[in-house]
Nucleic acid binder design. Sequence first.
DNA 1: TGTACATCAGTGAACGCGCGTTCACTGATGTAC
DNA 2: TGTACATCAGTGAACGCGCGTTCACTGATGTAC
Lengths: 199, 199
Amino acid sequence: MSKNYHHGDLRHALIEKTLELVQADQVHLVGFRELARQLAVSRSAPYRHFPNVEALLAEVARQGFAAFVDVLEPVATVKEYAPEERFLELGVTYVQFALEHSAHYRLMFDCAYFKQEDFPEVQGLAARAFELLKRTSSACMDKSASDRDKVELATVAWAFVHGLSKLFIDGQLPKIKNQKRFIRSSCQRFVKLAQCANE
Amino acid sequence: MSKNYHHGDLRHALIEKTLELVQADQVHLVGFRELARQLAVSRSAPYRHFPNVEALLAEVARQGFAAFVDVLEPVATVKEYAPEERFLELGVTYVQFALEHSAHYRLMFDCAYFKQEDFPEVQGLAARAFELLKRTSSACMDKSASDRDKVELATVAWAFVHGLSKLFIDGQLPKIKNQKRFIRSSCQRFVKLAQCANE
DNA sequence: TGTACATCAGTGAACGCGCGTTCACTGATGTAC
DNA sequence: TGTACATCAGTGAACGCGCGTTCACTGATGTAC
């Protein structure tokens, strides 16, 4: 494989470079010209792999969601856990994924980058993630709980983990010493909420 | 005041138009040229009022934070309320402000628009808002609670209201029938959490 | 094993566009006398 | 009350820039015979 002409795996390189720029708070630089420049490739080369920038961003988000579901699903299905334990671990896993893959997380949930409705595969994966959350939180409720209540609890839980992730990622929190410990303990507080909801 | 030459209050008009575009999910259109076009004014007119677009966005955010603090502060200082009541009302007020002023809220908390560290006045107002939240949530805790615990509870509360606001604003929630009622009831659930934290 | 050919991935020039910003200018407004 | 002048807010032409996108092209790779 020649080093000068055929890049080898430009498609993959475009995706990686995009993540790198997002991570470095430089989304405004994500564009075919700039990417081509940074990858030392001609301006028009990216068009071999994506019809336009939006499609590239959507593909990155899709991969992010796929990885997200892959990480959450096993946690949501551990049979040995009690419902509250599963709920807790799912929350912790959610926030940790967001922090470890912050560039992905940003692209996944910031509607400014691409129109989710134009990419049904992305929507499908996002819906699966929410379903996992709903199923796991619902398992902590009384069997008599209405579907409306279940959706509400899932939404409240989602708001919490999403908000926490966003504040961390955007650097808006006052410094916290032991981040992992903080995430776990705040999620623990949160699970109690589900128990209160039954009362 | 001539209608054709002197605009009258271009500064104000620029701010309003910016909010209008953000509200309509068209932040990408916010720029001096486009604003000038929409306000039927020459390209260079905006420079009479702001040195650059970032300064305009920061000013809009500053006004947003000022209004935010103005709305939260009275709620946080109602003496007739019990601590838990104040905490609850503050949360409800927070989310309602975010939804009623969603364009402002976006500019206030999305770090992509301008560098907050370059605008100390904005930072100061943001810090005041967090202080209000911290003071109000702390009042619900045992007197023996450490400052660390107080910051933690405030952060958890912030994560929740911020996450809920963001999900609503970005249209990522499944449809909810009675939005106001939902906000109140989920904040109520949340306040119980503060009580649990004392146990 | 060698050659001919199809295919694929990247090139580089070119088009048109919108942006930010500067600058000498001018019309409108307010103020001093 | 009227005039002269300073000041302010907007004009419009111009500069340079980076972007997305198209298009005819060519070098590299793989495959069939």
